[in-house]
Simulated scan of single mutants.
Amino acid sequence: MSKADEASLGLDPAIHPLPRLRICALLDPITEEEFATLRDLLETSDSALSKQVTALADAGYVTQRRAVRAGKSRVWVQLTDAGRRAFRAHVAALTAMTERS
């Protein structure tokens, strides 16, 4: 499916790839999550998760912050307000597609 096709259906090309959709789905109901926890929940590597988080950050949909906890530097990922709106609109578009079938 081309980006133009995705857009015409109301799908967000920044969220549509499954790994990014899953990241947004995990982050939507919470304030933020630690990078390592996301990695474990998604059963992926640090580098693969980093690539997907960077794509979402480039779209303005997530932010990352570093914090020291228990003497270790950790990264926390959070959906922005724009990211939350975009994710919910994307899910609504997917739902609408299934209802038309």
Rank of each mutant, 00 (worst) to 15 (best):
I23D: 05
R22H: 11
L38I: 11
A93M: 01
T54K: 11
T80N: 01
L56F: 07
M97Y: 14
Q78H: 06
R100Y: 01
H90T: 06
K72Y: 13
S45K: 05
A86M: 04
I15Y: 05
R100K: 12
L49W: 04
D46L: 13
H16E: 09
Q52P: 00
P17M: 02
T54H: 14
L79Q: 09
D5E: 13
T63Q: 02
M1V: 09
L42N: 09
R85S: 15
R66G: 11
A89T: 12
D40V: 12
A67L: 08
P19W: 13
Y61L: 06
R100G: 02
W76S: 03
L56M: 03
V68W: 12
E32Y: 12
L79H: 01
A36V: 15
R88M: 04
L42R: 07
A96M: 04
Q64T: 14
T63N: 07
T54G: 00
T54C: 01
A57L: 05
L42T: 07
A59W: 08
A48E: 04
T54P: 01
H16M: 10
R84W: 08
R20A: 03
R39C: 05
A14L: 01
P29N: 05
A7E: 15
L56A: 00
A7K: 15
A70F: 06
L56G: 00
K72L: 12
Y61Q: 04
L27P: 01
P13V: 04
D58M: 07
R88Q: 15
M97G: 10
A7I: 14
R74G: 02
Q52K: 11
A55T: 04
T63M: 08
A86R: 04
I15C: 03
